[in-house]
Amino acid sequence: MKDGQLVQVAQVVEDIDKAMKHFWEDFGIGPWDVYEYGPETVQESMYRGKPNTQHYALAVTWVGPIQYELMQPLDGYSIYNEFIEKHGYGLQHVKFYYSDCAKAVEEYRKKGYEVIQSGRIGEDEFYYLESVDKVGAVLELGNAGEIPPPIRTYPPQQ
């Protein structure tokens, strides 16, 4: 991957299992790796400058060179809930790869994009930027670091 490359498109959904089922059965998109995260598993998790206590489920699959992600808030409050309240369910963020996230965050900050949520899962860093009013979606910067294995897959492996 090279810096600035689009690596992920993500949407917030009401029911992650229902969404995976439709993508798999109707479009052949999958299989999906499913994860659940919260303050116990996300290091340095911050939401608008305060510790983020939200639990959420996510599922990912590859569509060509792009990872497609589904996000479902389970409890608490974060940028996912903010987005749902303002825009409903649907496309929420796009993610760009940077080998040096700190440097990229600073460059975007100079352009007026502030970090609104961030954290680290395993070796994977992520930074969501305040960008919906400028580009129509949240921008995420990440280093595509290694993460722990999924808790399950869909469809279940035979």
Rank of each mutant, 00 (worst) to 15 (best):
P31V: 01
Q92M: 13
V7E: 07
V34G: 01
Y108N: 12
T61L: 02
Y80L: 15
Y35H: 10
G90E: 04
Q54F: 00
N81H: 13
V12R: 13
I16A: 11
L58I: 03
D3G: 14
G28K: 09
A144C: 15
D124I: 00
A104D: 08
Q11E: 05
L139P: 08
L129E: 06
Q11F: 07
A59L: 08
D15Q: 09
V42W: 03
D124G: 01
G76P: 02
Y127G: 08
D3T: 06
A10I: 08
T61D: 01
Y98L: 08
G30M: 05
D17R: 15
Y68F: 10
Y127L: 08
M46K: 00
K86M: 03
Q43N: 00
Q72G: 04
K2D: 14
Y68I: 15
K18F: 09
A19N: 02
A104Q: 12
K111G: 07
Q158N: 05
P73V: 05
Q54A: 09
A19E: 15
G76N: 11
L70N: 11
L129H: 10
I66C: 11
E130H: 13
Y89W: 11
S118C: 02
G119Q: 05
D26Q: 15
Y108H: 15
Q92N: 14
K18S: 05
E106R: 12
Y113D: 07
G64I: 01
F23E: 07
K103A: 13
K50E: 12
Y128N: 10
W32Y: 04
L139W: 06
F83I: 13
Y97C: 05
E25A: 04
